[in-house]
Amino acid sequence: MNEDDQRSRPNAGGVPRKAPKARDIIAAIVDHRLAGELKTRGFRKKGFVFTRRHGETGQVIRLDLSSWNSDDRGMFGVSVAVMFDAIKRIRGQEPPRLPGPGNCEFFSDLRGLVEGSPPTWQVDERVDIVEMSEKLCGFVVDGVLSRLDRVETLSDFEATGWVPAMPWRFPAIYAYAMGRWDEAEKLLREEAAFFADRGLTYEQLVEWCRLPGLKAGP
């Protein structure tokens, strides 16, 4: 019997067995342990997005489901985002109490933060939900939250070692917000030089990053 035959094999009552949807399998993996771990740390859940206010930061853990998921076969990734009240206020913005991913200044997928984490997580109806849930929790709780739990201010974030995880823009914005304007200017000039063949200029970067007072000329 091939794999597709097994999926449609009738149950004891003679009714064809319906395979669970990939979304439902992923939800079961999350609910087995990760959702509870995040809730105890103050995260609120909406779908596959978990958000919390932590000191002067907003923090987001999101499961990104593939648009190619079909029937029980699917995959998902995990991304992490952080909003900093200090950066919002430098830009003349009032930070929301609970941010969405679009409100954040720092973004990375799990692979960029935790060594050894897979780029995607594959599921189908035969996946061991408990085993995958425990593995996922290990990367998110031990790998990410063990550091994010100690991040309540902009300056706390430096100790995570994650500032360079976003290779462009964010390290300069972070340096600026920390008062290291010379470093911020240097990083933006390096980015402009790297992408000069695409027409990017230092002046454009200063404008896009919205860093008031940073030298805008050559």
Rank of each mutant, 00 (worst) to 15 (best):
D4Q: 13
D4A: 11
P10F: 06
N11D: 09
N11G: 08
A12G: 10
G13A: 10
G14E: 05
G14Y: 13
G14H: 10
G14K: 07
A19H: 04
P20Q: 07
P20C: 04
I25C: 06
I25Y: 08
I26N: 14
D31E: 15
D31C: 04
H32R: 14
A35Q: 00
L38T: 00
K39M: 00
T40N: 02
G42Y: 01
F43P: 01
H54I: 03
H54N: 12
T57L: 07
G58D: 07
G58I: 06
V60H: 13
R62G: 11
L63H: 14
L63E: 10
L65P: 05
D71W: 06
R73I: 10
G74L: 12
G77Q: 05
S79N: 11
V82H: 03
M83H: 05
F84E: 07
D85Y: 08
K88V: 00
K88C: 15
R89T: 09
I90S: 03
R91H: 00
R91F: 00
Q93S: 01
P95L: 00
P96Y: 08
R97W: 12
L98V: 08
L98I: 12
L98G: 02
P99I: 04
P101N: 09
C104F: 02
F106Y: 10
F107S: 05
S108I: 02
D109R: 14
V114E: 02
E115V: 09
E115K: 15
P119T: 14
T120P: 03
W121S: 06
Q122C: 04
V123G: 13
V123H: 13
V130R: 11
K135A: 15
L136Q: 08
L136K: 09
C137M: 05
G138F: 09
V140D: 09
V140S: 06
V141R: 05
D142N: 04
D142A: 09
D142C: 04
S146K: 11
R150K: 14
V151Q: 05
E152W: 00
T153K: 12
T153Q: 04
F157Y: 04
F157C: 07
E158C: 12
A159K: 14
A159R: 13
W162D: 06
V163Q: 06
P164A: 09
A165W: 03
A165I: 10
M166G: 09
M166E: 12
P167Q: 06
W168H: 07
A177L: 13
A177H: 06
R180S: 15
W181E: 05
W181K: 14
K186E: 15
L187Y: 02
E190T: 02
E190D: 09
E190N: 04
E191P: 01
E191R: 04
F195W: 15
F195R: 15
F195E: 12
D197W: 09
L200D: 12
L200R: 14
V206Y: 08
L211C: 06
P212M: 00
P212T: 00
G213R: 04
K215L: 07
A216M: 07
